[in-house]
Amino acid sequence: MAGGVTATAALPRAAARRRARRGAATPWLLVAPSCLVLIVLFLTPIGYVLLLSVTDPNVSLGHYVRIVTVPLYSRVMVNTFLTSLIVTGLCLVLGFPVAYVMARRRGWITTLLVTIVAMSFWTGFLVRTYAWLVILGNKGPVAAAYAALGLGSPPRLLFTSFSSTLGMTHILLPYMILALYAVMKKIDPSYLKAAASLGARPGAAFRSVFLPLSLPGVVNGCLLVFVVCLGFFVTPVLLGTPRDMMISQLINQQIEELLAWGFASAVAVVLLAATGILLTIYNRFAGLDRLWG
């Protein structure tokens, strides 16, 4: 080995290197616990589901073929995506004006709206689902209004695609509003003033300044609502009809009633893949780190 002089010179350098190494390791140490939790509680079960989908009861891709070829299952898939699309559209149409007012106005109206949206956000969705059973039910306010106006009994509202879509839209609306609001309140009002000073009418200023600036919120809100809606379970069961079955109901039934875990896993993998594809597209164009405002 080296002599005394080199040894003493090497000492501080080694210490520096150790420090540097520790410095490089710190971020890893910080993320290690959450990574571990993710691997154990998230990736392992998902890997297991993936494995089950091609091995239970025997090794084959049969479950995936069945999803595509049996009309019921492909219809459930299509129906789930269509329903999610409709709910997302409704949430956007209903949520945009609310978020706009919340972001542009100051004072009591904003406070009131934020309170209403937040309270609705925090109320359990089962409670909100049951509320629709009462509102649209035979003894509910809608039926009472019909009777009071002398219109006889109302058309059948409950246990239809209409009631189930309505329920889901109601439950997901706060997600949309909050996503839009987060982006809209950051839009500097002076941009709109500048547009006005250059001769733009309010409508034109909104179309060519505010709307483009609020688009990230629109994309975020739509993505959030759509992805959550894909996995909806209780609301369509309670408010809808068996014809409106969504993917989650199918998975639940396959597991609970038919014990067909392999097939249920395959359906779950399809749902996961669809969500993954959506997020990938989003990431490509917008960047996932912007999802939360």
Partner: peptide, 17 residues
């Protein structure tokens, strides 16, 4: 028999979790 492989995999995963 037919579930043996899965059972073990599942048991190992479940035991660790």
């Amino acid at each position: 028999g037919r579930r043996r492989f899965l059972t073990r995999g599942g048991a190992a995963a479940a035991a660790s979790v």
